[in-house]
Design a protein around this nucleic acid. Structure first.
Lengths: 234, 234
DNA sequence: TGTATTTTTCTTGTCGACAAGTAAAATACA
DNA sequence: TGTATTTTACTTGTCGACAAGAAAAATACA
């Protein structure tokens, strides 16, 4: 292995470019660094990442497949908007997935899953304590995603992940302007959920998952209502 | 608009190429004309469709996003295999989606949805009568997809459509060698489901959707068991 | 003859250039 | 001055060619 390469940062491994662009754009979209409706320009991205348009294009096709960007044929492509009118369909799906993934975790989890779940549980508790709203969102999502993985149904985990992503985007929109606390109660509920999963108590897991999801949805809706009220007042 | 074009078939509209390739390959995969594991060669497809590899590639990226093909980096890409080991996760998801979409249809359907649903119901009855197994699969899927649309939750309809696609592929595998009848009973159950939706009876819709789904799953599993038994005997 | 190494072949990944299509700008016309 | 039409500018879609990586084939060596 002769080390004659002089520019290590410029030379990426073949195929790593699309993944990098995909991951980065995905994060920027979900973190609202790229606001909904923002135009996405291929040549601009090509210059930014110092590669040709081809791999950029592939990343964009993937993102479009997940509904994160919208493409108008022959015209432009932009970050997809958040559909507030049909938010209830989102909440319906979210609650059901919370329920079913928690139940399946109680049924199908393996011993090695529990430490992972507990780890995210502690991260979440820490986020609550520190008052970092964005960390709360992230760790809560990670906690429930880990539970879903332990349930071992890829169809459900797939949908659930998409919903959590979309939720991340929506919450980010509101937490930009507010510092809000998720109540301590959520931490206790997480602990109960872990107990039910560990005990393989399907019914309890189902019930707790549903109740917890509805709590969260209520909290979010309360947040939205207050925000809208303020918007109207201003 | 001067009509100087001499070769109408060769000149496709800009952007229509990827859709054509995508749709066609998708159908071929779901109909098992392309068997699971079949290699997919870009240049071969490019020659077949008389276009460059670029639009072919875009179609393949889309198909990969839906899990219909698997790509080994720098090596090959092939039609994704059917996972028989974890078929129960597929059935779990399918039953739940049958349930929830039927319930939501009872809740959210609009008058204009019912004729569409009834239309597919009649198509299904006709398929049963004619004994055409593949038509049974297709019309049954169309019937339930229409119900899901009437439920108006894009998250659920999205997952459900994917599940129905995957089911189409699995059943196609078994109906290649067998001529099997779905019982007349399924037609009656469809009629009951329509009645519950029309009456906006959520609980009945939920119950019927679940029972119907479990019937179908049982039927399919029975089919699989007999097929496997035969395979062993041979 | 059997194994390690090199060479070849084949497929995918990336590139730069060009063509088609659309929106905005500029011009013509009333 | 206001509207219709042409021109321009810019973005996306497609192409052909080349480079990188990996498997298969061929060769060298014991």
């Amino acid at each position: 292995m002769t080390d004659t390469d002089s520019s290590p940062t410029l030379e990426r491994k073949r195929g790593s470019g699309v993944k990098m662009v995909y991951d980065l754009l995905r994060d920027e979209i979900l973190d609202l660094e790229l606001a909904p409706g923002s135009p996405i320009d291929e040549v601009q991205l090509a210059e930014r990442f110092k590669m040709s348009r081809t791999p950029i294009r592939e990343a964009l096709v993937r993102l479009a497949g997940e509904g994160l960007i919208d493409t108008l044929p022959n015209r432009s492509t932009m970050v997809s908007s958040i559909d507030f009118l049909n938010m209830h369909t989102f909440f319906d799906a979210l609650v059901l997935m919370y329920r079913v993934t928690t139940r399946l975790a109680a049924q199908n989890h393996r011993p090695e899953d529990l430490p992972i779940i507990r780890g995210f549980h502690e991260d979440y508790a820490a986020a609550i304590k520190s008052g970092d709203a964005l960390a709360m969102i992230a760790t809560n999502a990670a906690f429930h995603a880990a539970i879903a993985e332990a349930g071992r149904n890829p169809y459900f985990t797939g949908l659930f992940r998409r919903l959590l992503d979309e939720g991340r985007r929506m919450l980010r929109l509101y937490y930009q302007s507010y510092e809000e606390q998720f109540p301590q109660r959520f931490v206790d509920e997480h602990a109960e959920i872990i107990a039910a999963i560990t005990a393989r108590d399907l019914e309890a897991a189902d019930r707790l998952g549903k109740a917890h999801a509805e709590q969260i949805v209520q909290q979010v809706q309360k947040l939205f209502a207050r925000k809208n009220q303020l918007d109207i007042a201003l």
